[in-house]
Structure formats: C-alpha cells, structure tokens
Simulated scan of single mutants.
Amino acid sequence: MTTETSATKRIVVVSSGLSTPSSTRQLADRLAGDAVAQLRERGHDVDVQVFELRDLAHDITNHLLMGFAPPKLEAALDAVASADGLIAVTPIFTTSYAGLFKSFIDVIDPQALTDLPVLIGATGGTPRHSLAIDYAIRPLFTYLHATPVTTGVFAATSDWGDGGDGVRSLPERIFRGAKEFADLVERTDRRDLVNDPFALDRPMGHLIGGLAGE
C-alpha cells in the first residue's frame, strides 16, 4: 500500500429516491463506500458529499421557473461542478429515470459535467428495468460530455437477497462499477476545467435571469 497521498479526490453522490428509507439511497451509499475504499487503498484522500434530491425538490422547481438557485441547491450545483467524480442513482419510473433526477440535471450548468467521471446506479422493482441505464441514463450523461463508466449498477428488489440464483450478485456488480469509477477518477484531472479563469461565474442562463437553451 502506498504511503504517498495525492490531492484530495472530491466525490459527489446524488440520490433521487423519494421514500424513507430508500433503496436508491442504499445503493448510492454502497457504491460510494466501495469507490472510496478503492481510492483510499491507492493512497488518495477522499471527500464525499451526498445530496438527497427530495430535500431539494422545491428549490429545483423554483430554479426551473425563475432561473435562481437558493443556497442549498447552489451548494449542490457547485459541488457537482468542482467534483472529481459523480455517483448518480435514480429509481426507474415508467421505463426511465425519475422526473426529479432529470430536473436536477436540467439545472446544472451543461459545461460543469464535461469530462466528469460518472458512476450510474438505478433501482426498480424488476430486473427488466435495468435496460434503462443504457438507453436512457447513459445517453443523457454522454450528451452532456460527461464520462460514464462502462458498468452501470441496477438493483431490483430481488437483488437485495443473497444472490443465490447464479446471476452475478449485487455486491459483485457494485464492486466492479466502483472499481471502474475509481480507475477513471484517479486518472482524470479536471482542475484546469474547474479553475478556468475565462469561465463565467454562473451559466449564461443565470446571468440573464433564465435558463440557457430556452
């Protein structure tokens, strides 16, 4: 194990589960735990910030309507913009990501996600919803120039059991996704992007009182 530590890696975790307790938050915590363990084993200090989108739901809606982010939402947006990696987990509703999840993505400065490593997680009642990771969630982050890792982790209700059906167990999938994420976070340097002296302090949509792209 290396004894020399590099700059602290900043990981942001976003969970859009609506219930308490939430299997979506549980999956987010498991993904973050494995990713942090991977990075610390390699000698990195890690700072983790977790945001429950249900706590920001009113602020997100107000921002969509008014183009202004209240302090709690602004803190989440700033954290994403300055992160070295993002773990994003959503429940699957009607074959796709939750509306709250998409609304949060909509209020992020599009440039903030450029080259950002993303570990995608999703939860749903049955395994057939797992395809939503690749036909809905992954293209969303790719469109925004983020870098989703190859393995997306889906957890169906039955996956929280012992995994004795011969299918790769949930802990194994979590470990694989977290390892790929840690590999990417370790070799990605977004400091020049985050500290660009010519970048706007706020997205253009904020400066003109609305959202860019409207």
Rank of each mutant, 00 (worst) to 15 (best):
N62V: 03
G17C: 09
F198L: 14
L73F: 11
L100M: 15
L200Y: 07
V48W: 10
T142Q: 03
L131Q: 01
F101T: 08
S169Q: 10
L144F: 04
D78T: 15
V48L: 15
V107P: 01
T24E: 05
L86Y: 13
I120F: 00
V80S: 11
T123I: 10
L131K: 00
R176Q: 05
V50M: 15
I208Q: 05
S158F: 02
D47Y: 13
R190V: 09
F141M: 05
T90G: 06
F93P: 08
I133C: 02
T150M: 00
A81I: 12
G67V: 00
T126N: 08
L65Q: 09
F198R: 15
T24Y: 02
I92A: 05
R138G: 03
P110A: 04
L31V: 09
L170G: 07
D192F: 01
L119N: 02
D162A: 12
G177R: 01
P110K: 07
V48H: 10
L140G: 03
R128H: 11
D165M: 09
T126C: 04
L73Q: 05
G205M: 04
L184K: 02
A35M: 08
D134A: 02
S96A: 13
R173I: 00
I87F: 07
P203C: 08
L56K: 13
A32F: 04
L193C: 02
G213P: 10
I137Q: 04
I174Q: 06
G164T: 14
R138P: 09
D201K: 14
P127A: 08
